[in-house]
Each structure stands twice: as structure tokens, then as C-alpha cells.
Simulated assay, not measured.
Amino acid sequence: MEDPGELAAIVDPRARATAAHNLIDDYQSAVGELSRLRREALEELLADGMTQTQIAEMLNMSRSRVSQLLSAGVRPERAFLGTGAITVALGGKHEAGKEKPGAVVSAEALAAFERLAELARSHGLKAEYEVVPPPGFVVLNRPNLIVACGPRLSPLVQQVLESDNNVGFAKDNDGWHLVDHIAGTVHRSPCDAGENGDLAYIGRLPRPDGKGTFLYIAGIHAIGTSGAAHFIENNLAELYRETKTRRFSTIVSCRFDPESRQVISSARVSQIYRHEGAAQ
């Protein structure tokens, strides 16, 4: 962050206004993250047996203020999504029937983004999406990134997925499917049997530069990606409680309305595997 005092020395008012605007966004993001960290710490202290009165004495504030901090402000589970403005990278395909096709995303992928964006906004975070054109070279080395792009659309993502020894995608003569390597089970999409359901991978994977992780969701089919977003939307607190911001993976199922293609339910079908011993 820049020193606010340095902004006054900027002569051009347009440049000064832009710099001040950007700095305000940076500070608001930092304050939001500090608020989240404080609330999480207070909740941990309560869980460890401290009373609100004892916490108030420790922080030199009133008990009513402690109560207010615990009931308002940024919820700890926001960190599952990110600590600042979120980018959702959506896998794109070439437009069919055009001489110079551009990259387009499916309606289901956009529906997944809308769910995640609304969830982010409800936790005080901005969200935008970008389309990853074929052959799927997405920039993974950046913070606050969610990738919603199946391995068939991005060989790069497929390589990163190979770091997960617990859950993964596979392909055979019957098509793409998910494998739970720990349980020794194969999960095939209900869509392939003509049913109104699909399966998806949800996990936190390592960045290639080794400096962090990114959240990854992908269905066997496009509707499964929307199902993964539905599951996160409805189970954010549980996911954060189980994994914090550490690496993990799990398989979820979803059901959808065949007419509207809207996801109507989702559930886990495997354990939440924490990647113990992995660099977080």
C-alpha cells in the first residue's frame, strides 16, 4: 500500500483521484480481513472456555462491544473464498460454425459464477470472471483465484490435479469419471445414464510457483460445475471449519431440473480429504 501522505503530492487531479480510489479499496480489503481474523479468534477463545466478560477485559472494551463483534462484521468462513477481490476463471470452448471462433462459456459455467459471485458479495468481497480460451492456459500464480475449468479443457489444470493422491478425474472407454483413490470407488455421472444429475470435484490445489493455493471446482459435465458452486454456497461454514484454507479435495453430487437446468440439490459423496503433509 502507498502512504496516503504521498497522494497529496500528486499534481494531476485525475491521477490523484485514481490513486486515492485504489488505496481506499486496498485499505477496505485489509480492514475486512482483519475484522474476519478478529472474529475468528474471538470465537476460538469462547470455544476454549473464555467468557465474553473475560475477553472484554483482555481487549479493554465493554462486554456489549465483544457481543457486537461476534454477531456482526465479516464471518470467518469468508476466507474460504479469498481475502480480496475474487477472480473466477471459467473454461471456454471455441464457438462452433465460425471461421474465426472466439472462446465462449456454457450457461452452466456462468450459473456457477453467479452463485459464487453472489456468495462473495454476501461476505463483502467483489468477484469477476474471465474466460480461459482453448487450450486452457490459465494463470494460476495469483491470489484469490477460483478455477472452474474441467481437465478436458485445460491440460495445465489436469497436471496440477495429479498432485492430489486422494481424488481425481480419469477417462476410459465409457468416458470421464471421478475416482476416490482412498475408498477405491469410481463415480460416474448420472447424466451418462440419462438421469438428471452429475458429479463434481471440489478442492484447493497448489499454485505452480509454490506460493499459495487456488480453489478448484469442476463437474464431469458442465452442470456439475454449477452443482459444485451450489454445494459451496450452502456449506461454506462447514467447508471452512473442516479445511480452513488448507489443501483438500472431495466429490459432490448434484440434481438438476431438466427443463431449467437449474441445480436443485447437492451433497457430498466422499470424505473431505485433507492433504496432510502437503505444503499449504
Score class of each variant (00 low, 15 high):
residue 125 L to G: 05
residue 144 N to I: 01
residue 157 V to N: 02
residue 129 Y to A: 08
residue 67 S to M: 13
residue 86 I to T: 06
residue 101 P to Q: 04
residue 103 A to H: 04
residue 75 R to G: 03
residue 107 A to S: 12
residue 108 E to W: 07
residue 155 P to R: 02
residue 124 G to S: 03
residue 190 P to Q: 15
residue 92 G to M: 09
residue 112 A to Q: 08
residue 80 F to M: 06
residue 191 C to M: 15
residue 172 D to M: 07
residue 172 D to K: 07
residue 164 D to K: 07
residue 64 S to A: 12
residue 111 A to R: 07
residue 124 G to Q: 07
residue 168 G to Y: 12
residue 153 L to T: 00
residue 105 V to L: 00
residue 174 D to P: 08
residue 187 H to C: 11
residue 93 K to E: 14
residue 61 M to D: 09
residue 184 G to K: 11
residue 186 V to P: 10
residue 96 A to N: 04
residue 183 A to P: 15
residue 128 E to N: 15
residue 157 V to H: 01
residue 149 C to F: 08
residue 125 L to D: 09
residue 92 G to S: 13
residue 91 G to K: 04
residue 96 A to D: 13
residue 122 S to C: 11
residue 62 S to D: 06
residue 69 L to D: 08
residue 130 E to N: 12
residue 161 L to H: 06
residue 82 G to F: 06
residue 184 G to A: 14
residue 85 A to N: 09
residue 142 R to Y: 14
residue 160 V to P: 02
residue 107 A to T: 15
residue 119 L to E: 12
residue 113 F to Q: 03
residue 123 H to T: 05
residue 179 V to H: 07
residue 165 N to G: 15
residue 97 G to M: 13
residue 185 T to H: 11
residue 164 D to R: 05
residue 97 G to S: 14
residue 100 K to F: 14
residue 144 N to Q: 02
residue 165 N to P: 10
residue 142 R to T: 11
residue 73 G to N: 05
residue 160 V to H: 01
residue 139 V to A: 11
residue 88 V to C: 00
residue 152 R to M: 03
residue 166 N to G: 12
residue 110 L to E: 04
residue 167 V to S: 00
residue 93 K to C: 13
residue 87 T to M: 09
residue 178 L to I: 04
residue 165 N to R: 11
residue 101 P to G: 01
residue 110 L to D: 00
residue 109 A to F: 14
residue 92 G to F: 10
residue 160 V to R: 00
residue 90 L to D: 02
residue 149 C to Y: 05
residue 97 G to E: 12
residue 116 L to P: 15
residue 155 P to I: 06
residue 111 A to F: 05
residue 124 G to D: 12
residue 157 V to M: 04
residue 125 L to C: 10
residue 66 V to Q: 01
residue 64 S to Q: 06
residue 84 G to K: 03
residue 78 R to V: 03
residue 147 V to S: 01
residue 119 L to D: 04
residue 170 A to D: 10
residue 100 K to I: 09
residue 155 P to V: 01
residue 124 G to W: 11
residue 136 G to M: 07
residue 181 H to Y: 14
residue 137 F to T: 07
residue 63 R to Y: 13
residue 135 P to G: 14
residue 70 L to G: 14
residue 187 H to T: 15
residue 160 V to M: 05
residue 134 P to T: 02
residue 107 A to N: 13
residue 83 T to P: 11
residue 148 A to C: 02
residue 159 Q to C: 13
residue 136 G to R: 04
residue 126 K to V: 10
residue 191 C to H: 14
